[in-house]
Amino acid sequence: MCISAFRFPKFEFSDKTLTENSLNVSGDEVLVRLVDKYAYLPVGSANGTFLARWGMCLKNSKTPLRFCRNESLESGKWASFSPTIVEIPVCLALSMGVWFQVRKAISGVLVENFSGERCVFVLTKPSTHYFEVMTGSKRMPVLINQIL
C-alpha cells in the first residue's frame, strides 16, 4: 500500500462529527489509518468539505479496497461506479514509515457504494524518482499542484 495513514486539520469539522465517525483526533489534526475499521477522509466540494468513507468492501471481500490506480480509471474500469474526481485536503501522508507534507490536497475518486454511502478512493500513480527514493514505495498518491 503506498499510503498507510493521513492527517488532516480538524477545524473544518465539529467535535460531534468527529466523534460520530470514531475519528482519532490528536491535537489540531485528525489521524486516519489504513488499519482503522472506520476510516473517513475529507472531501472538498463546492459546498464545503465533507467526510466520506475511505474505500469500500467489494463483494466476497472483508478487506476494503482503498486505492484507485490512475491507469485503471483511465482505461474505464471504474466507469460502472460513475466515479467523480475529487480533492482530498489532507496535510500529511504516511508512506512506508515516512510522513510527507501535502501542500494542497491529493486526488481521489468518489463513488457511491451498494447502500448509497459516499466512498472515496485515493488515486495513485507510479512513483516519481524522488518519491521512490524518499519512501521506497513504487506507487504514490496523485498530488494536486505539488510535484514530489
Partner: peptide
C-alpha cells in the same frame, strides 16, 4: 527510524 513522527518536506 530515529523519530517515526518526523515530517519530511521537499
Amino acid at each position: 527510524k530515529m523519530y517515526p513522527d518526523m515530517v519530511f518536506v521537499k
